[in-house]
């Protein structure tokens, strides 16, 4: 009689979970270093952070969370055999991903107009590195969601939506540390 592996309890692909844990570990390490460097220049980091648009970042959080909801809904709909509705939900999720990127690009353009670049202050090193790396994941996720709305097997949609939830998960940790902790 074969014993049941603990990994069998995990919903979705094991490889996707390895990716999720790796990504959260990488971003988590980046955030820890960010706060460690902040500890030696609290005033400088506070001054730099005040130049960020917290409201726009808050709106982006709502956009990404809603996009994650549509991705999870797409998975449920596809499992129920409602392929057309699942595709619509995936289009909605990817459209909101594009909206997130549009706001992020506007945020970067505002900073550039003020003459703020990555080496203006240590804060902006981390700001551009962490939010830029995250935005690259959002762009990849948008492409994945569009791909699986075309090749819409349940396993394809599951993998793409797990990737998208990882992007969501990283953002809810990154947003408060970079934008909110004062």
């Amino acid at each position: 009689m074969s014993e049941k592996s603990a990994f069998e309890d995990l919903p979705g692909e094991l490889l996707m979970w390895i990716l999720i844990i790796s990504e959260v570990a990488v971003f988590g390490a980046g955030l820890l270093v960010f706060l460690a460097v902040r500890a030696i220049d609290v005033a400088g980091f506070a001054e730099a952070q005040d130049m960020l648009n917290r409201t726009a970042a808050g709106i982006n959080t709502v956009i990404l969370i809603t996009s994650g909801f549509l991705a999870a809904l797409a998975m449920q709909l596809r499992k129920a055999g409602q392929r057309g509705k699942a595709r619509m939900a995936l289009f909605g999720a990817s459209g909101l991903g594009v909206a997130f990127l549009w706001i992020k690009i506007a945020e970067y353009a505002d900073k550039a107009a003020l003459g703020i670049v990555w080496d203006t202050h240590a804060f902006f090193n981390f700001y551009y590195m962490l939010t830029g790396f995250h935005a690259a994941h959002v762009a990849a996720g948008v492409v994945l969601l569009l791909l699986v709305s075309w090749r819409d097997s349940p396993s394809n949609i599951e993998d793409a939506t797990m990737f998208w939830h990882m992007v969501d998960l990283v953002w809810v940790l990154l947003f408060p540390v970079i934008y909110l902790l004062q």
């Binding site: 919903p11 994650g68 939830h165 969501d168 408060p176 540390v177």
Partner: peptide, 25 residues
């Protein structure tokens, strides 16, 4: 702020990523 972040991450894992179906994980 960090408590709210932990709570949000927890909801994404348990509901969006369906970890609620695997309580030990």
């Amino acid at each position: 702020v960090l408590l709210l972040a932990w709570w949000k991450a927890r909801i994404i894992l348990s509901q969006y990523l369906e970890l609620a179906t695997a309580p030990e994980w």
